[in-house]
Write a protein that binds this DNA or RNA. Sequence first.
DNA 1: ATGAAAGCGCTAACAT
DNA 2: ATGTTAGCGCTTTCAT
Lengths: 344, 344
Amino acid sequence: MTESTKASTMKDVAKRAGVSVKTVSRVMNLDPSVKSSTRDAVLAAARELGYRPNVPARTLVTGRSKIIGLVISDIGNYFFAQFVNGVESAAEARGYSVLLCDTGENPDTELRCVDMLLGHRVDGLILAASRLRDDEITHIADTVRVAIVNRFHPDPRVLTGSIQDEAVRLAPAHLVSLGHRAIGYIGGPIYSRAAWAREKGCRDVLSENGIEGPLVASGFPVNIEGGYWAMNWLLDVMPHITGVVCYNDMLAIGAIRAAEARGRHVPERISIVGFDDIHFAAHAHPPLTTVSVPIHRLGYNTAQLLLDALEANDDKDKLVDAERTRCTVECHLVIRGSAGPVPE
Amino acid sequence: MTESTKASTMKDVAKRAGVSVKTVSRVMNLDPSVKSSTRDAVLAAARELGYRPNVPARTLVTGRSKIIGLVISDIGNYFFAQFVNGVESAAEARGYSVLLCDTGENPDTELRCVDMLLGHRVDGLILAASRLRDDEITHIADTVRVAIVNRFHPDPRVLTGSIQDEAVRLAPAHLVSLGHRAIGYIGGPIYSRAAWAREKGCRDVLSENGIEGPLVASGFPVNIEGGYWAMNWLLDVMPHITGVVCYNDMLAIGAIRAAEARGRHVPERISIVGFDDIHFAAHAHPPLTTVSVPIHRLGYNTAQLLLDALEANDDKDKLVDAERTRCTVECHLVIRGSAGPVPE
DNA sequence: ATGAAAGCGCTAACAT
DNA sequence: ATGTTAGCGCTTTCAT
């Protein structure tokens, strides 16, 4: 079978190059103190033997795995696909690998994932859509550096990557400025803090403008179908609504379909706005008015924040800058075709 | 900082439970030969100390990391998001973790990714959209079990997960049956074997029906924008085409937009079919007629094929069934609204 | 500039 | 049913 020949080790390389194991180690770690002739000999021997450093072995002794764990809730959600990509890029650029886990929105699975990742001795952890309680996260932070996304946590050791706070106000404010006063809201995952923040943003904007509501549809699956059902529910309960804010674009796309199916043309007879500006948003029909989030950058920056902290931790000099515990990406409203002035 | 207390080891647990290290090891590995009272004592001690087995250490001695490496070319492509999800599920279910790499379509990056994964001593490798040459893959197979996707490789050690061969004929056959005879094709990634197979499928179907073509637009980015540009090119070169087969749904969605922008209504004045049936296909406008691929299952089955091979390799009894070197998922045409009878 | 020895946390092969 | 010894491949002292 494939492993006919065991992978060669530093010992093999050392023997072949006629040096000690430690010298090989030095070469592999780019120690400048090795004479260039020895280095070349070692490198040659390594190449001939197809030598590849054994990361787990190094991890065992150094305590650093060069792996970061990434926990997401559903890669079927386009948002996470882009986010993962961003994390990946940042990690790759700095010599780290990403161990990925998908919890399927289940908190128990999430805990199991974290456990598994800790077993692998990941150097850091990114919880991209944690459904865990604050104290559970604090507990994790006792063991490993952790970064969370779009969520506030009181523990200063917990790093945070998020959209700017005001972003949650953009969509409802747009609807209000268009004259809408009968507004519905289609909510996100029940235990998600991000979902809670967006719903609050909507509520705040309305109340500041003396508008009642919004009528909230929540508990629906956070995908296109869920948006379809939620919109139908909204229209059943409150047929005269003229504007709907959605937790994300997937829901908004489903909502548009439901509205159209009931003859409420978008945007003439009802306005719908999304959130995230996923790739397909521009190609929905009508093209979606939504809040653009630089998702890839959010993933990239969050990973970088984590990596910075890890390295600051190694170099005692490079102390963790107290301010560098949070990063924020800017969002903006993208006006396309799914929201218009209130009818009549 | 976080690692104030070093993680506890088997030795700690052993001391606390008043047993030997080996007994702790046995308990952790579910060895049935330990008395249940000792097992309980060990488990209690482990819990109290917050003990978590050190996977890298185990890897070092067993030579098995319980990690599989997954190399994809672009997670921004919705296809891969779903595929990764499938692989993840299968791995999780069998106690494996997934180390993910994105090559961004770059063969050099791909090689670097593989190298890194081998450094981590992954037990197996899935190359989901390899741009590598056959001999490069053979070389990798010398070191580790590898599975490839939608691509044929002569080496019997290389496992394969793919769509059924006939799937590539479905879309062009549909167009032909609708009466189309002036057909265009929008191609996928240049170095992709899957892309090559689909193009050939189209060519074959046409020639079997005595039809010339197709006119091929290739070299465009494989995303919505690329589809848009490709369609414009097709329409410039051959304005009288009535049907277009696309490498995938992303391209098809872009193609539809381009056609509509030029007043060629879909499907009345031009028919467009996609491939994959990604989630958004049904929600495009018009809803996309496409070839439905059970992507999640493809990922799941491919991972399972790999895992089976790995375990058969461990248990010498359970020899690798010679037939179990390939798995195939069935695809079918989904007729929606983007293809219709030829105009006039 | 290079090497020898110890040990990271775990399991395999033998004890007992 | 449980313990002992050795060693996986590497890095870290500490020598030379």
